[in-house]
């Protein structure tokens, strides 16, 4: 069994976080997310009808092991993000928020300046802030300084399924971070997720790769296994890689 992951006051057995978009039905979404055994599931506030107690999306996520992570997708500024977080705290009764500020609606790339501003303010307001950001090691330290409970750097453009294109920066972030590092966006295959975990990421967040697969339930299971395997490998310490064979007559034989 892998070590548990602690973020703020919550412990997670599963290091696979998931999302709720793009599924062909709420029923299928529920089946896939249960199969993933994910305990932290993000949901876009803009998709939820907070005034409706029987909102279709929320009813399907009502399970005791699931913590809902509302996200601020759709906001363009820190001000709008704070408004959204407060709305979600009131309506969904959670102070957890996945902070997503992407003024650019095409590539959905996060605005680092607005994100830092909003994170600082939301921490002061008592939120558990999980910021979606570029794989920028300096930004991660700046966010840590203002008190976020984890960082969520992207592996590749969101929804691209391209894997860990930012790996060199992710390695620096993981090496330096004092808060959990969750790799968000771009993970398109279980092998990408396993790789992220082997690198020492504390968790990954996967949505498109599961939702858009031909068989989302089986794919969710595959991701669960990959994340567990990757974490286990990380904890067991990978054998060092070597580019060349060691010569039979070592360069230092003259020392003997």
């Amino acid at each position: 069994m892998n070590n548990t992951l602690k973020i703020a006051d919550k412990e997670f057995t599963s290091r696979l976080f998931t999302g709720t978009g793009k599924f062909s039905s709420s029923k299928l979404m529920k089946e896939a997310l249960l199969a993933s055994e994910s305990e932290l599931i993000t949901v876009a506030l803009k998709r939820v009808d907070v005034a409706n107690e029987e909102d279709d999306l929320l009813t399907h996520l009502n399970h005791s092991h699931i913590t809902l992570l509302p996200n601020t997708s759709g906001v363009r500024t820190a001000k709008e993000a704070i408004f959204a977080a407060e709305l979600s705290r009131e309506a969904l009764e959670t102070n957890w928020v996945k902070l997503e500020i992407h003024p650019d609606p095409r590539y959905l790339l996060p605005d680092p300046i607005e994100t830092l501003k909003a994170a600082e303010e939301l921490v002061k307001l008592g939120f558990v802030v999980m910021p979606y950001i570029h794989a920028d090691p300096v930004l991660c330290k700046r966010l840590e300084d203002v008190g976020v409970q984890c960082v969520m750097p992207l592996g590749a453009p969101i929804g691209s399924n391209k894997g860990l294109k930012t790996v060199d920066f992710l390695e620096i972030i993981i090496a330096q971070s004092n808060v959990p590092v969750i790799i968000d966006a771009g993970i398109g295959a279980p092998s990408h997720a396993a790789y992220a975990m082997e690198l020492g990421a504390d968790a990954v967040l996967v949505n498109t790769a599961i939702a858009v697969s031909q068989n989302p339930v089986a794919m969710a299971k595959a991701f669960k296994m990959a994340v567990e395997a990757g974490r286990m490998a990380y904890e067991a310490k990978l054998a060092p890689r070597s580019e060349m064979a060691i010569a039979s007559s070592p360069l230092t034989s003259f020392l003997n």
């Binding site: 039905s25 803009k46 998709r47 009808d49 906001v75 408004f83 959204a84 709305l87």
Partner: peptide, 12 residues
């Protein structure tokens, strides 16, 4: 295909 009725919120 999942029918989406709501996909926006004015956060201001």
């Amino acid at each position: 295909l999942e029918v989406v009725w709501k996909d926006w919120e004015h956060f201001r």
